[in-house]
Amino acid sequence: MKISQNDVEHVARLARLSLEPDELQTMTRQMDVMLGYVEKLNELDTTGIEPMAHAVPMSNAFRKDESQPVIGIERALQNAPASGENCFKVPKVIE
């Protein structure tokens, strides 16, 4: 096994997903298959090979420090599941 059910539960917590017990089992099995498959990359010696983060090798894309239009409070909040006082409303955050 490449991955244990405990690992999968930990990853689910990181990803803010809650998995039902049967989902957890299926997920563990499927992740295990995939992780087994991607092992094949280890057949390749990549010593000294630069990692490729972008499809096209470019650098330095900037914008000037100039204002662009805002979308306005109403539009900003139009899709909010809950709002109030011009803000997005969420279950109380305890610090």
Binding site: V38, L41, N42, L44, T46, I49, E50, P51, M52
Partner: peptide, 10 residues
């Protein structure tokens, strides 16, 4: 992830 990025270069 890093391994995959290197293979991507290849």
């Amino acid at each position: 992830y890093l391994k995959a990025q290197k293979v991507r270069t290849l």
